[in-house]
Design a protein around this nucleic acid. Structure first.
Length: 479
RNA sequence: GCCCGGGUGGCCGAGCGGCUAGGCGGCGGGCUGCAGACCCGCUUCACAGGGGUUCAAAUCCCCUCCCGGGCUCCA
C-alpha cells in the first residue's frame, strides 16, 4: 500500500511519491530564535519527527532541512525586527540573543527526542544567496526596486493564492495601511532598506538593508534540497502569507512547478481551550512543560491526536497520556522479566503480525497516529492477556510481543530510551529486598496483615511497588 | 465581512457511504486477606439541529446554530 497524504495544496489526499524513488527531500520551517521555544513548536516538530521516523521505518531515506530564522522577521505592528526587539528586551547584542536561543532550541529539541535535521541553516549566513536570488527575480521581471526596498510583484505570478485558497481580490483588501510605495497591496518585501544605526544590515546592490522573512526559507530550501522538493511543512499559521510567498518566489525564480510536491501543515495547540499567546499569559515553554511531564508523555499526548487537528493541552489529557505510557512500559517490563524463566518454544502469536500490519496501514493513511497507537494498545492488552493466561510461557512469544511493541513505538519516536526497569540499588540491596519479601510472605501466611501491609507501604514510598499475584509477589520500580 | 477547519458516548479521540476504532474515567466480575496491577464484561448502536440524495449516511448535498483559526506577528 502506498502512503497517502493530505496536501494543503489542493486540499485533498494524494498518493505519496517522492521525486526520486526512495529519497524524501523535506523542509520544515524552523523557529525565529527570539525567545525560548514553546509547546506550539513542540507540537509541530514532534509531529514531523514522527512522520520522518515512520518514513525511515518504511525504508525511505529522508534528507531533512529545518532552518533557524535569525534575521528579517519583522513584527508588523511595530515594524521592528523580532531579533532586535528581543535583544533590546534582554540588553544583548542581536547575535548574542540568537546564540542564546538557538542553542536553547537545540537543547529543547534534543530533550524531546526529536531527530536532528541533516542541515539547520541560519538565515543570517545566507544573505549573499538571498541577494543573488532577489537579483534573479528582478531580472525576470517579478520584482521591483523602490527607494532601497525590493518588492515581489504579485501581479506577475497568476498562481498567487493557490495554497491558501484566498482570492486575489481579498488579498488586496487591507486592515493595515500598506506601504504606499508598493505597486500593489499584496506585494511583499524581498529586501528592506535599513535605517541608520540599525545593527542587522548588509550591503546589497540596493543599498544597506536586510532580507524579508519569506525569502530565506525559499533560498535555503533550494540551496540544500534543489529546485523542487518533496515535502514542505510547518504550522498552519504559516500557510498565508509565508508559504504562499515562498511558492511565488521559488516558482517565479525557477520556472518549475510545483516548488514542493506536498505541503503538510500541523494544527494549533491550545492551552485549556485558549490560544497560547504571551498576551493571554498562558504561554508554556518546552522546558517548563518538561519539568512537569517527561518527553515521552508529551510525545504520546501530541501523537494521540492527528497532526492536522487542533489539540488542547490540559491536565486531564496529559495524565491520560501518562497512564497510557505507564501501561505500555509495565507490560514491556513484565515481558522482559518473564523471558528468563520461559520455555524454549517457537510460536509467535498471530495478533502480533496483524497489529503490525494495522499499525502500518494507519500510519500510511496520512500518518494517522491515533489509529496507530490503538494498535499498540491492542498489542499491550493481548500481551498482558498472554502473560496471565499461560503459566508456561514461550520465550519466542514473549520476545515477539516485546519486540513488536518496542519496534512500533520507536517507529514514531516513542520509548527511544526505554530500558527495562531495574532496581537502582547495589546488588546487595536486591538480596536484602528478597529477604524482606520472604519475611513478608511468612507474615501473610500467619495472617499478620498489619505488618505485611506496612512493609508494602513503606517500600512503595521509596519507589518499590509490591503487587501480590497468585504466582507470588511481583516487584515494580518507579522513579 | 471574506476564507479555512471543526462540532462523535461522562471526558479525550479515530473513522469520512455498508464491516467492533482505541484510550481515560465509572460500574460489575475474575484474581486477591486487603490494596494494586492485569484480564473479561458493561458504560442504553454516540455522531450539533433540520431537510435531502441513496437499497444503505457520523460519513455525500443544502440550510440553520455553535466553536476554533486565518485575513500580511506566530510552529
Amino acid at each position: 500500500m502506498p502512503i497517502r497524504v493530505f496536501n494543503t495544496l489542493g486540499r485533498r489526499y494524494e498518493p505519496f511519491e517522492p521525486i526520486q524513488p526512495g529519497l524524501v527531500k523535506m523542509y520544515v520551517c524552523g523557529p525565529t530564535v527570539q525567545d525560548v521555544a514553546h509547546l506550539g513548536h513542540a507540537r509541530t516538530y514532534i509531529a514531523f519527527d514522527a512522520i520522518i521516523r515512520f518514513l525511515e521505518y518504511r525504508g525511505y531515506r529522508v534528507f531533512y532541512v529545518r532552518n533557524i530564522t535569525d534575521v528579517g522577521h519583522l513584527r508588523e505592528e511595530t515594524g521592528e525586527d523580532r531579533i532586535i526587539e528581543g535583544a533590546g528586551r534582554e540588553k544583548l547584542q542581536p547575535m548574542e540573543l540568537v546564540d542564546k536561543y538557538m542553542f536553547a532550541f537545540f537543547k529543547d529539541m534534543e530533550a524531546l527526542g526529536i531527530r536532528r535535521p541533516n542541515i539547520q541553516p541560519r538565515a543570517s549566513m545566507h544573505i549573499l544567496d538571498m541577494i543573488e536570488f532577489i537579483k534573479g527575480l528582478i531580472e525576470k521581471g517579478h520584482a521591483y526596486v523602490v527607494d532601497g526596498n525590493v518588492y515581489f510583484d504579485v501581479s506577475t505570478f497568476p498562481d498567487y493564492g493557490k495554497l491558501s485558497g484566498v482570492k486575489y481580490e481579498e488579498l488586496i483588501k487591507h486592515r493595515i495601511e500598506p506601504d504606499p510605495r508598493k505597486r500593489n497591496p499584496a506585494d511583499f518585501a524581498l529586501w528592506k532598506k535599513a535605517e541608520k544605526g540599525y545593527l542587522l544590515k548588509w550591503n546589497s546592490p540596493w543599498g544597506e538593508g536586510f532580507p524579508g522573512w519569506h525569502i530565506e526559507c525559499c533560498v535555503m530550501a533550494i540551496k540544500y534540497l534543489g529546485e523542487q522538493i518533496d515535502i514542505h511543512g510547518g504550522g498552519q499559521d504559516l500557510i498565508l502569507p509565508h508559504h504562499e510567498n515562498e511558492i511565488a518566489q521559488a516558482e517565479a525564480y525557477t520556472g518549475k512547478k510545483p516548488f514542493a510536491r506536498y505541503w503538510l501543515h500541523t494544527g494549533y495547540l491550545t492551552i485549556n481551550g485558549e490560544k497560547m499567546s504571551k498576551s493571554l499569559g498562558n504561554f508554556i515553554s518546552i522546558r517548563d512543560a518538561l519539568k512537569k511531564y517527561e518527553a515521552d508523555v508529551l510525545r504520546l499526548f501530541i501523537l494521540s491526536a492527528h497532526y492536522r487537528s487542533q489539540i488542547d493541552y490540559n491536565e486531564q489529557s496529559l495524565s491520560q497520556a501518562e497512564e497510557n505510557l505507564r501501561r505500555i512500559r509495565d507490560t514491556l517490563n513484565q515481558l522482559y522479566e518473564l523471558v528468563d524463566e520461559a520455555e524454549e518454544r517457537g510460536e509467535v502469536p498471530g495478533e502480533i503480525g496483524e497489529a503490525r500490519k494495522a499499525f502500518i496501514r494507519a500510519m500510511e493513511d496520512d500518518f494517522n497516529t491515533p489509529g496507530a497507537l490503538a494498535e499498540i494498545y491492542r498489542l499491550t492488552r493481548s500481551a498482558n492477556s498472554y502473560i496471565q493466561s499461560s503459566s508456561k510461557h514461550s520465550k519466542t512469544a514473549l520476545k515477539a510481543y516485546y519486540g513488536a511493541i518496542l519496534e512500533l513505538s520507536q517507529s514514531i519516536g516513542l520509548l527511544q530510551n526505554y530500558k527495562p526497569a531495574k532496581m537502582k540499588y547495589p546488588a546487595d540491596a536486591a538480596k536484602v529486598l528478597n529477604i524482606l519479601l520472604e519475611i513478608r510472605e511468612e507474615l501473610r501466611k500467619r495472617r499478620l496483615y498489619e505488618l505485611s501491609d506496612s512493609i508494602r507501604d513503606k517500600l512503595s514510598e521509596i519507589g518499590i511497588i509490591i503487587e501480590d499475584t497468585n504466582k507470588g509477589p511481583r516487584v515494580k520500580f518507579r522513579k
